[in-house]
Amino acid sequence: MNLRRLKYFVKIVDVGSLTQAADLLHIAQPALSQQLATLEGEVRQQLLVRTKRGVTPTEAGKVLYRHAQLILRQCEQARVDMEAAGRGLSGAVSVGLAPGTAAAALALPLIRTVRARHPGILLYLNETYGTTLSELIMNGRMDLAVLYGGKISVHGLSFLPLLKEPLFVVGPNSMPSPPDQVPLRMLGEMDLYLARPYNVVRRMVDEAFAAAGMVPRVVGEIESASTLKAVIADGLGATILPASMAAEVVASCDAWQCRIIEPVIEAPLALCQSDHLPLSEPAQAVKEILLELVTGLPHSLLAGEHHAAS
């Protein structure tokens, strides 16, 4: 297999059409079909199935597509690293930051520090849900991500614990405020707006309630931070959030926050990366900056430690 044929194959799968892929690659369709046939001959497998709507990969094609993406990405990174040798670090680095977490506070300092130290690095920040971020890293499409989780090992990923955020109940001032620290058992009758059950924080809340022989009274499931703030501001109910997000909601509207105790519930934030794809030199530099910034956050697990790039 040569790299050019792999590149052609990935483009065909991406667009789902030989004709469109040929146009995008600026080659004749018969020539592209011949390259595909040669590739299928080399691997002794049918890679694509032609349908009325275009082409779709076979099971063997899906496997090759995943590997081809990683191979092409590593080759491109090798080229970038060689060009960067002997001069300042340069190249693209992608970092995912899970919304509604302490990771959001890292965005601006990260941009500032990377620009000051490594102006040649093009930093791409993606704020989306942790499950999406981990999939992007697993597929080789993102370098690093800061997200909740890491307690359970996931094939293809490694997690470095960064901090543990205590959970708070947050409610509007139109609702009676519990004490500054509230036992979980006092929340059983409270109308709650929480994330969907697959969300890490929601799972922790459900597990804590279940361990106490209770079920949270969930009256709505909301993933949007702005909608959640609006619901609290409107006095429709309360929510349970990590410390950073709780403080943000309270600052945005007429609301209170109380730390949950008995038991204390802590959401683990971790740095996620591939466990088999090496980081590029620019990504290593950004990782080191991330670890430095986390050291200064409340509840950090890295305080006082020196972390060498690895």
Rank of each mutant, 00 (worst) to 15 (best):
M190Q: 04
C272T: 13
E223A: 12
R202E: 09
A255H: 14
K229A: 10
L277K: 08
R185V: 11
D191M: 12
E288H: 06
Q257A: 10
L192V: 11
P282F: 13
E189N: 08
P166K: 07
V215Y: 10
V170N: 06
G188E: 14
A238Q: 10
A283Q: 01
S274I: 14
V286Y: 15
L167M: 10
A233G: 11
F209S: 04
N199W: 00
E281Y: 03
E262A: 13
G213W: 15
D254Y: 10
L241G: 05
H276G: 11
I261E: 11
G171N: 06
V250R: 10
V182W: 11
R185F: 14
L290D: 11
A212L: 12
K229V: 15
S177E: 09
M214E: 07
I240L: 06
V264A: 03
S174T: 11
S224L: 13
Q273A: 14
A233V: 15
M175R: 04
P282C: 13
P183W: 13
W256K: 12
R259Y: 12
I260S: 02
C272Q: 01
M245T: 07
F168N: 00
G237H: 01
E262L: 05
E288A: 02
L162G: 00
R203K: 09
E281S: 13
L279C: 11
Q273W: 13
A255K: 08
R202W: 02
L192T: 14
A243D: 10
G188K: 09
V218W: 02
A243M: 05
L290F: 05
P278M: 05
A285W: 03
